[in-house]
Amino acid sequence: MNPVVSVLFVGGVLGIGAYVVAVLDRAFGPVSRGPRDWFVWPIRRAAFLAVQRRTETERPDAEAWILAPALLAALAAAGLTAVPVTPSLAVADVSAGVVLFGAAMIIVMVAVFLQGWSPNSLFPLIGAYRFAAMALSFGIPFSLVVLTTAIPAESLSVGAIVASQEGLWNVVRQPLGLPVYLVTGAAVAFWGPFRIPEGTDLAGGAVLEASGSARAVWRIARAGVLVTLSVMGAAIFLGGHLGPVLPGWAWTALKTLVLLAVFVWSGHAFARMRVERFVWFGWVVLLPVALVDVFASGILAL
């Protein structure tokens, strides 16, 4: 794809996706004033953040503070490039697409750490360290279930993984994969019960000191990560653009919307998990389930 078109395409998908996340978040959230409000509220909220000034803290790491949201948005964009939206339309359906996506999602940890570190403030710093402490616990099972989808396709290309689901979607072939992906994906996006680095106990944690445009960009970038996770989840577990009657892009959009709705709903449905409990859950529950997923898929492929 032409580089300029690619940038516009990825930016457009992330922008529209972030707006959809905000609409869904309002609809599922504690304050919901009906459908018109769901669609208008994100615009008004963005306008307020645009008017509000950015704050400065005492001796921050100013460059890193600017870099953190930009890095988060860039990682969401990088992950998105590997997914074919239709059989012929992908920004870069590279031969190791799922590896590129997995790497981008794991580096989200660096962006969150920078966001918490740079204001030179206690609660954001605790939030940053919490996420670093969580990262290995969700990172390994997340990577395992993503890579397992490559086994039936005998390829790491996302296009090939989608094509391999022509007769049977991976959500059926690998029934443990999607549940583990959704749980660990929410943790990658520090969303819902995994809002551990940004918990209310830390008064906002990593994002406590951010205001105005800095906070808006961080929120949009985080929504972008959820969009990328949903687009990729739709591609590697739900057959991506495959489906009858409707065009390929419409199937991709529909399946993405379903996963996005599940992610956003979970954000309001569960209590925030304790870090210690999460680490236990990651190693004692998620990792063994992910390993069973790998072995079962391997045996089926033999």
Partner: peptide, 16 residues
């Protein structure tokens, strides 16, 4: 632009 955005923001819940 700031004034226009400000008017747009008026309907949002006031962050207190």
């Amino acid at each position: 632009l700031r004034g226009w955005l400000g008017r747009l923001a008026v309907g949002v819940e006031v962050p207190v």
